[in-house]
Design a protein around this nucleic acid. Structure first.
Lengths: 205, 205
DNA sequence: CCTCAAATGCAACGCAACGTTGCGTTGCAT
DNA sequence: ATGCAACGCAACGTTGCGTTGCATTTGAGG
């Protein structure tokens, strides 16, 4: 029987890869740089991962750096608000922000990373589906509502605001976005007064 | 008096830059490649644009390839639907899609391009504000609604769906998204039946 | 036509990272 | 001790980078 198989120093290599990605961005991420940072010969890296996207894909898959919890606050509006806040945090906190920006930015350019991002988003959606199941059980959700549409609008709005517009995220951004996306509010924490007779949705502020 | 000043062959250079960006993506876009494609010596390019992002910035600024019209259909829901359709087209049609993906993807990594995208989004929003002015005038819009929030959710949802999830866009995607984002529906074209007693919003399909 | 300056063309350079090769070294299990 | 797998090491040719010095073309003004 042979001994252990597979790369022995993948831990150091993945760590160096993600750190350098966050520091320099995808474009200036170099395999020789990773080797140097990891204290490893570049031959070792090339033996296991044939290309930069392959290495990055393995590194991202191996480390759960972009995972954040799925909230359960008791209301759809609360869950969506919490989701927005978590997403904003991930895209704002410097450590994960650079990483997420580089990874998702590079995904637009590279098929291998695109596939990775694709499954990442699919997994995220699957994890977030319970939010909508619970909301439906509470009667907060009109049937026919498409969770993917809500999630995409939510994530996309945060993405555009933080990484494309680069505008500061106001205090009530999460709540406003959740309110906009709630197919039916009802329990909006700051919705204050009674609903308009014609169904105009309440809004914080 | 000296003769004409400034680059003489910027047209060919910009054209080659955008074509190669669409063909190969930002990462594999090389200045020597641009020079070759444009039938120009690379020295000429380096003399006028010191870096790849600088060149790309100038090329993108010089050509209005990513502009699309602002709709005016007579209703907020109709305008938003048209906006979604236009955006989906831009991000789907192969010529502009690769270009947009590369530009926005690269913007996540490069400060110079980020600034360019920033002003692009600001301009887009300014151009789309009349949609909300008209909607407000028609009484379709609860005051306090933030147009930027709606636009960001709209654009972001399309972005996530098309370029990150890479899922095919269903026929009723635009309408569903517009319905989700309409602060007040009322005139939803396919909303059909009467509103639920508790205010559940109508939905196509 | 001639002049003159700006723009461009051309050839070569050092540099960095690429990806590959051959061979020696280390670590661990049998 | 032996054998295998992973790793280290030292080169190699290639490509694109960004720069340099000098020659050539271009076009408006005299």
């Amino acid at each position: 029987m042979p001994m252990q198989s597979g790369p022995r120093r993948s831990a150091e290599i993945f760590d160096a890869t993600l750190r350098l990605l966050a520091e320099r961005g995808y474009e200036r991420l170099t395999i020789e740089g990773v080797a140097d940072r990891a204290g490893v010969n570049k031959t070792t890296i090339y033996r296991w991962w044939p290309s930069k996207p392959a290495l990055l894909g393995a590194a991202l898959g191996g480390a759960p750096l972009l995972r954040f919890a799925v909230p359960d606050t008791g209301s759809l509006h609360g869950d969506l608000t919490a989701l927005v806040r978590a997403l904003v945090d991930v895209l704002t906190e410097s450590s994960s922000a650079a990483l997420a920006a580089a990874a998702l930015g590079a995904a637009s350019q590279n098929p291998e990373l695109a596939a990775l991002v694709q499954t990442f988003f699919a997994d995220r959606l699957a994890a977030e589906l319970p939010i909508f199941r619970r909301a439906a059980a509470r009667g907060e959700l009109p049937d026919g509502t498409d969770p993917m549409l809500v999630i995409d609008a939510l994530a996309g709005a945060v993405w555009v605001r933080v990484l494309l517009r680069r505008l500061p995220v106001e205090e009530d951004f999460a709540e406003n976005l959740a309110t906009l996306l709630c197919p039916r509010v009802g329990t909006s924490p700051a919705a204050g007064g009674p609903r308009d007779t014609d169904g105009t949705r309440g809004r914080t502020g």
